[in-house]
Structures are given as structure tokens and as C-alpha cells.
Amino acid sequence: MAYFIFGFSTMVMFVALAVLLHLQFGVTGIVNFGIAGFWGLGMYSFGVFLVHFGFPYAVSLLLATALTGVLAFALGWVILDMDGQAVLVATLAFATIVMHLVTTEKWLTEGVKGLGTIRYPFDLGRSTEAVFLLIVVVITIAIILYAYKLHSAPYGRLLLAIKDNETLARSLSKPTFHQKLIFFTITSTVMGFLGALNGSINQFLIPRMLGPGVTFTVWIALILGGYRRVLGGLIGAVAAIGLFDLVIETYTPIPAAYAQMVPAIKLMLYGLTLMLVILFRPLGILGDRKRSYLHG
């Protein structure tokens, strides 16, 4: 049961990240390849504040979130005026820097030995993990509802316009850089906040958790599900992580002799699924509202 809760929490975490990426990329057109950086920065700084400095839980959570926000703002200030490829490389570089700093600054993070134990904010005995999972689910639902509402709000319309044709939006008096910067900072800060919560779910942090794998998994999930749709992230993350990690890797009866092959097979299936989606449903499983509108 505990393992199921851990796996499910991880999946919910990825759903939330994928919806945030939908907001950044699918709505605003910001190619953020530094998800692991923001998420990991929130997670590790939370761990450092809590374990290394011994701050209270809520204070550590707040400080970690704020720190992620400040760095997201500074990074956004520098890169958001550049084109898509430059933003991709810069955010990826940011995530790599975070991972390397976490590895090398042993006095603060314990390096590869790992940082722990990160406790839960409350102790409810055996139901602690389940209640915490519930909190994460509620936060994720809130993010999904926000994204939904944003799609039918003037602000969402502005962000879509920025993605489609930024110069035209600016010629219509919209301060596009300013708006992108604010939105990028907020969504990246929420990624950091989720990372901090993930610290509790994992209990023990190692630098490897901040590798590009997190970023790629979120991107694959979003592309798989459909990057232009709010539920694309949900469906993609459930399919990519739920199906592969939980069902196939954990609950499918596989003879012990073949068990070692499972991770490799999983990656291959990942790749195959992604190829099939890009070939036959380039806009993901859910596709695009615009197209279905035009033909239906």
C-alpha cells in the first residue's frame, strides 16, 4: 500500500507539472526545458532549510518557493526576449547548473550521500502519507481548474496571442515581455513549490533526482496527451507514468528471470509510443480544439 501511495503521488506530481508546462508552452509558447531545475531547486532548498538549518516546515516551504520564484524571475528577465531555441538551451542549462550545484556543494546538501530525512508536515500515524497525497491531489486539481478557467479569460487570450504572434500583440499595445515574465515566474514558482512537497514524499533527496529525466518525462507526457489542451498533461502523465511505472513495472506479473529487462523494455515502449503519437496524432491524443472545431 505504501508503495502504491508513493507511486501514485509521483504520478500526481507529474500531472501537475505537465499542466504547468501546458500553461508555459501550450498557451504562452515558452519552451521550458528546465522543469527539473525549478522543481529540483524547490525540493533541495526546502530540504536544506528544513534539515540543514532546522527551520519550521511552513517557513522552509515558503522560503524554498520564494527562492525558486526569485531565480525564475531573474532567468526569465534574461532569456524571455530570445527565440524558442535559445530559451530551450538556457532553461536546460539552468537545470543542469542546479543539479551540479546540488552535487558539489556538499557542505549544504551532503552531495551524493543524500539529504534526509525530510519529514511530513504532520504525523497522523499510518495515514500520514495518504493524507499528504490528498493534499497534493487537491493542489493539482486547483492547478487544472485554474488552467481551464484561464482558457476562457482575457488573460489566457492574451497569452495565446503572444504565442501566435508576439509582434502583432505588441503592436496592439500589449506589453508582451512583461506579461511573459510574470507568467513564467508564477508557473515556475509553482513548480518549485511542488518540488518542495515532493521532498516530503521522497523523504530522502539525492542529486540524481534532478537529472533531465524529470524534464523529459513531463515533456513526453504533455506531447503524448496533447500540449494544447489542459487535460493533455493529465492524460499524458497518467499514460506515461501510471501505465508504464505503476501497472507494467509494479503490478504485471513478470517472471523473475526477465525482471531485469523491464526498465529497458519500458524505455523502448516509451519511445515507440511517442513515435506513433507524433506520426499519427502530432497534436497528441487529445489533438487540437481548433481543428475539431473547423471540421466538426
Binding site: P154, L160, D164, N165, L168, K290
Partner: peptide
């Protein structure tokens, strides 16, 4: 010049 994901009314509302 146009916004590909905005309808005519959306474009005017923007």
C-alpha cells in the same frame, strides 16, 4: 498578420 488560435470575436476582444 493574424493570431492562429483566436477566433474572429476573440481577436477583437483581445
Amino acid at each position: 498578420q493574424d493570431f492562429a488560435s483566436l477566433t474572429i470575436r476573440d481577436s477583437l476582444l483581445l
